[in-house]
Amino acid sequence: MPFPENATGYDPVWKTIHWLTVAVILALFVLGGTMSRNTPHLVMWHESLGLCLLLLTLARLVWRFGHAAPPLPGGLRPWEAFAAVAVHRLFYVCLLLQPLIGWSLYSLSPVPRPFFGLFPIPRLPLGGLAGAGTREMLAGAHGTVAALLALLFFLHAGAAVKHHFVLRDDVLLRMAPAGLAPLLTRLRGRGR
């Protein structure tokens, strides 16, 4: 579905999924950086939020297929347009891959933990992959994708801040929650 010409931003479903994803990613980074085998409650929260991230990403993809994003802002140089598209596509790959790697690690763990303490998380059928080498490889991949996600997160947020405060366009406002848009506009000051 094409983005309506008169629309000023993403629809409320896009915005909700986007900001929930941001909150979950930030929580996952904090938990991932503080948890250990000695903090099983933090591990359980990390694993549960990881599955939430996977569900949010699948919901985002389903919504994306029926509701196109607004076009890129005019005036971008070709490399900027390429970078914007590349960062978004890499985000999608990482947002699918990271929770699947984490779920695989969970599935190979001898210690089952329930989803937010409520019910068992199903294990992926990994069968003969249960060796220590597989866990080490998956743990390394999980760390690498986390680092890539952090880089993409800062590139994406930095670009939004640059658009809002330096280029003074409405790119950030297109995704901002409706109640936050007036404050962001005041913080930026007058238009170009």
Rank of each mutant, 00 (worst) to 15 (best):
P2H: 13
F3P: 00
P4G: 01
P4K: 03
P4W: 02
E5S: 08
E5F: 09
E5R: 10
N6V: 09
N6Y: 07
T8R: 15
D11I: 01
P12H: 03
V13Q: 07
W14E: 01
W14T: 05
T16N: 02
H18P: 00
W19N: 01
L20D: 01
T21F: 00
V22H: 00
I25N: 04
I25R: 00
A27C: 08
L31R: 07
G32L: 09
G32K: 03
S36P: 04
R37A: 14
R37N: 12
R37D: 11
R37W: 10
N38K: 15
L42I: 13
M44I: 10
W45F: 11
H46E: 03
E47G: 09
E47F: 08
S48F: 02
L49E: 04
L49H: 05
G50W: 02
L51H: 03
L54R: 08
L54S: 03
L58D: 13
L58W: 14
A59Y: 07
A59R: 10
A59V: 11
A59L: 15
R60Q: 07
V62H: 10
W63C: 07
R64T: 03
G66P: 09
H67I: 00
H67V: 00
H67C: 05
A68D: 04
P71G: 09
L72C: 03
L72H: 08
W79N: 12
W79V: 12
W79S: 15
A81T: 06
F82N: 12
F82D: 07
A83Q: 12
A84I: 07
V85A: 14
A86C: 11
V87W: 03
V87D: 04
H88A: 04
R89K: 14
L90C: 08
Y92L: 14
C94W: 04
L95H: 06
L97N: 05
Q98R: 12
Q98M: 15
P99Y: 02
P99I: 00
I101Y: 09
I101H: 06
G102Y: 01
W103F: 08
L105A: 09
L108F: 11
S109G: 06
P110W: 10
P112R: 09
P112E: 12
P112I: 06
P112F: 06
R113T: 14
F115E: 09
F115N: 05
F115A: 12
F115P: 02
F116D: 08
F116Q: 09
G117P: 09
P120V: 03
P122C: 05
P125A: 07
G128I: 10
L129K: 08
L129C: 07
G131K: 12
M137N: 09
L138N: 01
A139T: 10
G140I: 02
G140P: 01
G140M: 01
A141S: 08
L148K: 03
L149E: 08
F153H: 08
L155C: 14
H156W: 04
G158I: 02
G158K: 02
G158Y: 08
A159S: 10
A160M: 07
H163V: 10
H164R: 11
V166R: 14
V166C: 14
L167F: 12
L167A: 11
D169H: 07
V171T: 12
V171N: 00
V171Y: 01
R174A: 05
M175S: 06
A176W: 01
A176H: 00
P177S: 05
P177Y: 06
P177V: 08
P177H: 02
A178N: 08
L180F: 13
L183K: 15
L183E: 11
L184Q: 04
R186F: 10
G189N: 09
G191Y: 13
